[in-house]
Every structure is written in C-alpha cells, then in structure tokens.
Nucleic acid binder design. Structure first.
Lengths: 111, 111
DNA sequence: AAATTATATTGCAATATTACGATTAAAATA
DNA sequence: TATTTTAATCGTAATATTGCAATATAATTT
C-alpha cells in the first residue's frame, strides 16, 4: 500500500491527475505565478524569490517540467525557464469543460 | 522534513494548491467524472463503480469534500454526494485567468 | 587550465499519502 | 428491538513526498 492503483483507472484519468498533482503544492504554484509575472527567468531568480533551498527548487522545477507545465532552455550556465502553454491549456480545457457542463445542467436535483 | 512549508507562501497560493492537490489523484478524478455523469448519487454506487475498497473511497470523498469539490447530504441510510460548483469554479477561474494572460502576452520571448 | 557561476543529483531524515481489514455509527426496516 | 444497510472511523503497513546538506556537472570567465 501507499501506492496509487493507477492501473485501475483510465489513461486520461491518470494523465490529468498527474498534471494536476504537479501543481498541488504551494511552492509550485508560487513558481508558476512568478514565471507569469516576470515572463522569462532563470532558476537562480527563483531561488532568491522563494524561501526554499536550491536543491528543493530544482526538484520542484523538475516536476513541473515533467508535467509540461514549464519548459527550460539552456542559456550559458543558466537555464531559462518559462511556462509551457501545453500543460496549462490542458488544465484550462478540462476545468472549463466541467464548469460548462455544470452550468448546462444546473439540475443539482439532489444536494 | 516531509512537511510542506506552507507558512512561507501566501494564503491564496496555499488555498489554490490545496484545492488542486485534492484532485491530484486518479481515483478522485474518477469520482468527479462519475458524479458528472450520473448527476446525483450515493456512495455505494461509487464503491461499485470504482476498483477500491469502501474505506478508501470514503477517505477520498472526505478529501474532495474538504476542498469544496463535492458536497453530500444525508438521505436515509445513504449519503447523496454531488459536485460542489464552488471548488470547481475556483479552479476554472484560476486556470482560465492564467491561460488568458498567456494568450495576451504571447511573448514567450525566452524559451 | 583554474576559478567561478548556475543548476542538477545523491542520500537521507521527517512527514504525508494511499489502501484496506476490522470495527463502529446511524438510519431504515422487519 | 433485532436486523439490515450504508457510510465513517481506527489502526496500520507500504510507499511517496518534501526539504536540505553535500556533492557533482556543465558552461563561462579569468
């Protein structure tokens, strides 16, 4: 136990859950919002901005990258990270689809 | 360690991360999608629908409820769970706001 | 080439999450 | 009231996550 039984769910359910999970941490939300704000950046900026050690930030960046929520390109000794529209758009579409369906129905005939 | 340093982030960052985190598991995505599909339900339905034991489902439901993603009302010996627009709309707004900002800028002048 | 700068990786301790059997609780029904 | 039905809680094992010091890597500058 302790392990999510991923094999019991659909591919899409696992994919969307993985992307969502990658953002389910305040540090990673903070990174996303910082990248939104400055629109271009290198990792050392983030290390100065956030109250976490460099290895911790690096780890969080790795997770965001794996989920296609950010992307980074090497730029000299630094790395230029920025938001990857790919992951963001998937989330945007997923939730607006659900919100739309909810509005259409508006039945809520139970609770 | 092992503990998220929540106190280092803003209230809003923590709040949104908490809601997002609550959906970052395929079982909870599956529950949400099932509730969308049938529009009204009781827990035993979910237990039959999903390949997880009853206490596990109950635990997942609790987390979704805590995040205002579902709500439940007692109905005899059963409980009627359905989607809580509250949480969903918060997520929808959050991601569409980010997606909009991204589209406006479209600079991506770095990566 | 040595030193510097910026980031990634490793290893590990502390804590959190996932899952479930056993049990409990609460309402409905016989 | 005893039984049944449905869901929550408790306890616990297995695994995952978080965070960081120490170290490694990789490109740049001196």
């Amino acid at each position: 136990m302790g392990t999510t039984k991923s094999e019991m769910f659909t591919k899409h359910q696992n994919e969307i859950a993985t992307i969502i999970k990658a953002l389910g941490h305040p540090a990673r939300i903070a990174i996303l919002e910082y990248l939104m704000k400055i629109d271009s950046c290198i990792c050392s900026d983030i290390v100065e901005e956030l109250p976490l050690a460099q290895p911790t930030i690096s780890q969080h960046l790795k997770e965001l990258k794996k989920a296609n929520l950010i992307k980074g390109t090497v730029e000299g000794t630094a790395i230029c990270y920025c938001i990857d529209e790919n992951g963001i758009e998937k989330l945007e579409r997923y939730f607006s689809s659900i919100a739309n369906q909810l509005n259409e129905k508006k039945k809520n005939n139970c609770c």
